[in-house]
């Protein structure tokens, strides 16, 4: 069990530090724009032609911009647990990066526990097939 929960559903998208995980992004070396998922080919700022990026760990805390839940099982490639359990979904605004990042909310935290503006932190949990994903939880 321990071995299988350590496998991320996508390698290289987030660190596997169980206590303080980070999403892994990139930052344009010329204009400072952050990217998640990682951009390594071309900067999308129309005033920047840089192809030079550094890999960065994104802020692991932010403010809840908005939230919802998935009351019905999403279609594949989502692997729905049986029986299905609705889960909350968060959009979290990162201050330094000035971007909003989506993600599921940690198991057991429903929409009734969420408020726009509250502090959120990144966490790791397995999806129904045992692969790890990033999730958000109240900080």
């Amino acid at each position: 069990m321990e071995a299988c929960v350590k496998e991320p559903f996508l390698p290289g998208w987030f660190t596997l530090d169980a206590q303080a995980p980070h999403l892994i992004g990139t930052r344009c070396a010329a204009c400072g724009t952050y990217y998640f998922p990682k951009e390594t080919r071309y900067c999308r700022n129309p005033d920047c032609q840089s192809t030079d990026f550094e890999q960065v760990l994104l802020s692991r805390t932010g403010r809840l911009w908005s939230y919802t839940d998935a009351a019905y099982p999403p279609p594949p490639p989502f692997v729905a647990p049986d029986p299905y359990r609705p889960f909350a979904i968060a959009a979290v605004e990162l201050e330094k990066e000035k971007m909003i990042v989506l993600g599921p909310v940690a198991d057991g935290v429903g929409v009734e526990a969420l408020r726009v503006g509250m502090a959120m932190a990144l966490t790791l949990e397995p999806l129904a097939d045992g692969k790890l994903t990033w999730k958000w939880r109240p900080a």
Partner: peptide
């Protein structure tokens, strides 16, 4: 986004809650 369970209504709902 579908792998982690974000459907189209997810986005509409985020805008609505906002």
């Amino acid at each position: 986004r579908f792998r982690i369970g974000l459907t189209n209504p997810t986005y509409f709902a985020l805008y609505a809650r906002r």
